[in-house]
Amino acid sequence: MMKKIILTLLLPAGLLLSAQVGINTDSPKAKLDVNGDLNLRDKIAVYDSSDNSLSQGNNDQLLVSQGEGYPPIWKTLRIPEYEPNKFYLIFNNSFSDKLGIRFSYNEQSNITTSRGSVFNKGTQYGTLSNFKKIAGLSQDINVYSTVSKAYFQFETVVQANFDANGATDTSIDYACGIFVDDKLVNLRQRNLKAIGSLQPFLTHTQIGIVENLTKGTHTVSVGCARLASYGSASGKTLTIGINAASNINSFIAQSSLKVDVYEVPEVFNPIIN
């Protein structure tokens, strides 16, 4: 009789241990469901079933969910300390392209006095005659503050299949521009001239900057144009970012674009101890 009484008392206890418990709620949604404030006076520990250990984490760590069906883990939250009214590097990346662009004589911009031509900042890409974009250098960047400075560093190799020396002033004028949302922000004009050896080439480098872009996503691109030909250059090919002859290859001639965006942060997430 005593055994039956003990079994009867233990049965409800076992049911309680396996049931869901609700505090301030009659319909708990988990094994322990607290509807209200929770005050912890001692410690929180995470159970590791692999070695039956309890981990309390380290100082300044947070308990982070790994998703449904997985136990939480301790993580260290790294928050940069921003000082007001100072610029910080928010975005940094570089891109490359080995396809480049080619210009025949018939594809030049017909600016016969190109050495004196004028390009204006803010000009729309579509209004510039015979400019071609270097496909791999068109990329999106994000700006998060109204106070920003974006720096662009473009480098490539320009080549023409000139004969040695050539006629007097055998050369080609060209221009390369950096565009943000198809608006010109920086441009450099140069001249590639025939020399004593065949198929001359030069390294083209330019640096541009634009300030206070609107917050959001912007597209950065690079476009170039053949402007005018002189001497016996009229039948020659000009290449930018790709080789025009076999004395160099596409690896040597490839283009690159580096983008750095500095911002004065507008959103701060202070931690109150």
Rank of each mutant, 00 (worst) to 15 (best):
T203L: 07
A228H: 06
Q206V: 01
G241R: 03
Y174G: 03
N106Y: 13
S145K: 09
L63H: 03
S50V: 12
H204V: 10
V34M: 13
T146P: 04
T8M: 14
L77C: 08
A160F: 06
N35M: 13
R190D: 12
L11K: 12
Q139L: 03
T237G: 03
Y262K: 09
G116H: 06
N142M: 13
F119Q: 05
R102G: 11
G100I: 07
Q159E: 07
P72Y: 04
S65E: 01
S94E: 07
V46Y: 01
L192H: 05
S55R: 12
N93Q: 11
K3P: 02
T112V: 07
F179A: 03
S50R: 15
G166L: 09
T237C: 00
Y151F: 12
P270Q: 05
I73V: 15
V259E: 04
F103V: 05
I111L: 11
I44K: 02
S50N: 15
V143S: 06
L32D: 00
L198A: 15
I248E: 03
C224N: 00
D60W: 09
T239S: 10
L63R: 06
A233E: 03
A225D: 01
N191H: 09
N212T: 05
P84T: 08
L7C: 14
N186V: 01
A19D: 15
L187Q: 05
D163L: 14
D140W: 01
Q254L: 08
F91I: 08
T219N: 14
E68S: 15
S65L: 06
I178T: 01
E211W: 02
L10W: 11
Q254P: 00
F268D: 08
S109A: 14
C176F: 00
V180L: 01
D173S: 09
A164S: 15
K4R: 14
K149D: 11
V259T: 09
C224F: 00
D33G: 00
M1H: 13
Y125H: 05
T8P: 00
G126S: 13
L15I: 14
L17S: 11
T76F: 10
V210A: 01
E68V: 15
F251D: 14
V143C: 05
L198P: 02
P71G: 15
I79D: 04
